[in-house]
């Protein structure tokens, strides 16, 4: 099922988090250019992160906003 690129699989999360060295980034990019399977999985991971961030979002209620504003000191309210 997988493309057998174990190193690439291990480097993907740190690569996306921007914590690899320049050398490692270059290696990862070279690999992604050559390997269709990893490249597609990498694009999937990027979209997945975005999807999770958007899906997890639930707007704050106006009621809570008002309550928080009400917690301010008298100077702010005056």
């Amino acid at each position: 099922m997988g493309c057998g690129c174990d190193d690439c699989e291990k480097m993907m999360q740190p690569y996306m988090d921007g914590v690899l060295s320049e050398e490692q980034i270059r290696e990862a990019q070279e690999h992604l250019e050559r390997c269709y399977g990893c490249d597609k999985r990498f694009r999937f991971e990027e979209k997945l992160r975005h999807f999770v961030r958007v899906a997890a979002h639930e707007p704050m209620s106006d009621g809570l906003k008002e309550k928080l504003a009400g917690l301010r000191s008298a100077d702010s309210l005056g």
């Binding site: 997988g2 699989e9 291990k10 999360q13 597609k40 999985r41 999937f44 979209k47 997945l48």
Partner: peptide, 25 residues
Amino acid sequence: EGDYYLYNRLESTMPDENPDEERVL
């Protein structure tokens, strides 16, 4: 399971060969 686990699992449930990642998502 490694980092490709979710992708591989989702892809395996799809009828078509090599779907693009958008459709997997």
